[in-house]
Design a binder for these strands. Structure first.
Length: 323
RNA sequence: GCUGAGGUGGCGGAGUGGACAAUCGCAUCAGACUGUAAAUCUGACGGCCGGAAGGCCUGCAUAGGUUCGAAUCCUGUCCUCAGCA
């Protein structure tokens, strides 16, 4: 049975580093599950940690990989920062690459902090291939959440009833729900297609640490990214035509600099804000991940965590040969 | 020292006799999440008890006073800022 190793958890816990170590030990290749690392030219701010002169190596499946420390890393640079990206696109990429890796007899290691992407790959998102309708979205644009909910109730009572109080006030979710229900109204016989991987032997590793440990890590990392030249990176993006309102520029560390470039706000304030947001983000990630009972958690502030992970993975990995 | 303005919850800032534990924003905390997910959204946020409904206590610089009732009116004190000296 094919295997899949997943490494998830909040930001700044060293997921990629661990993944590379494990890839070396268990003959693996890495697939990034990160909604920001997909953008070309966004390297420093998204923490791609590419070596000097790294070059994307294209393959004949239409996707490319970087080699880091001798390990192929997929999932970077899938999109232009001027373009929209979403789980849907990610799901047209990741499962394919995973089965390619299977084919090479190597271990696919899915690594990232974007919970939805991981979920999409493993469990599938039934409505992921329902396309967006810009026309519909435009029509819905100015409506209040109440009005949107009303509209949804009319086309899809079931879905409307199943939404929780938070989502009922979330225009973005409501619009999407209306879009989906409208789509199935127009395509009654269409079977939705699940863009997930086949059932396989999957191990989930979650990396976590006490709050203040993570916070400190975030502070250091932000400082490093400032030193590494996030400003220049942003300037390059802007020069190449990327707009502050593009989805890619909503990324942490990038969006905060808008007031610096456009409003003359001091960099100290920008960095403060960025750091604070990053901590909140880590919190949101934990809220998501801790619900998934499949995850086996490891505390990275434990000096022996790396060995402990390796031991667990080894045990799981070996079971292949016991079959 | 005089004159003027002002002192409200972690911060900014409303409120100028009753509907005030006090609009709102920020920060903080908790949560949601099935095509923007580093996005988007929700809730809590003086203290104590309670699952909740609710109840009790403390409270708008400070000490008094007026009033059935005060963050809001009056007086003293302290402090801050601006202008004049």
């Amino acid at each position: 049975m094919n295997k899949l190793l997943i490494i998830c958890g909040p930001t700044a816990t060293g997921k990629t580093l661990l993944a590379i170590t494990l890839a070396k030990k268990f003959d693996g290749e890495i697939i990034s599950a990160d909604s920001r690392q997909v953008y070309k030219g966004m390297n420093i701010g998204t923490g791609k940690d590419l070596p000097e002169n790294a070059k994307l190596q294209m393959t004949d499946n239409g996707f490319g990989f970087y080699e880091i420390d001798g390990i192929p890393v997929w999932g970077y640079d899938l999109a232009d920062p001027k373009e929209e990206f979403s789980v849907s696109k990610y799901l047209k990429f990741a499962p394919k690459i995973i089965s390619d890796i299977d084919g090479r007899g190597r271990l696919p290691i899915l690594v990232g902090g974007t919970g939805l992407y991981i979920k999409g790959v493993v469990d599938g998102i039934p409505t992921a291939d329902v396309p967006r309708s810009m026309e519909l979205r435009e029509k819905l644009l100015g409506k209040s959440p109440d009005e949107l909910f009303e509209t949804l109730s009319q086309t899809d009572t079931l879905k409307a009833g199943s939404m929780n109080t938070s989502d009922r006030k979330n225009p973005r979710r409501l619009m999407r729900a209306i879009e989906v229900s409208q789509y199935f109204l127009d395509h009654r016989n269409k079977e939705s297609q699940l863009l997930a991987i086949d059932k396989r032997d999957t191990m989930f590793i979650g990396l976590t640490a006490p709050r203040d440990f993570v916070d400190r890590g975030i502070e250091e990392r932000v400082e490093r990214r400032v030193r590494d030249g996030i400003k220049d990176e942003i300037k390059n993006l802007l020069d190449s035509g990327v707009d502050w309102n593009d989805q890619s520029m909503l990324s942490l560390g990038y969006r905060q600099y808008r007031d610096f470039f456009e409003g003359g706000v001091g960099e100290e304030l920008i960095i403060d804000e960025w750091t604070r947001e990053e901590k909140r983000y880590a919190k949101r990630q934990m809220t998501w991940f801790k619900k998934d009972r499949r995850i086996l958690w490891f505390d990275v502030s434990d000096s022996k965590f790396s060995e402990k992970v390796e031991k667990s993975v080894k045990k799981w990995y070996k079971s292949t040969y016991d079959e």
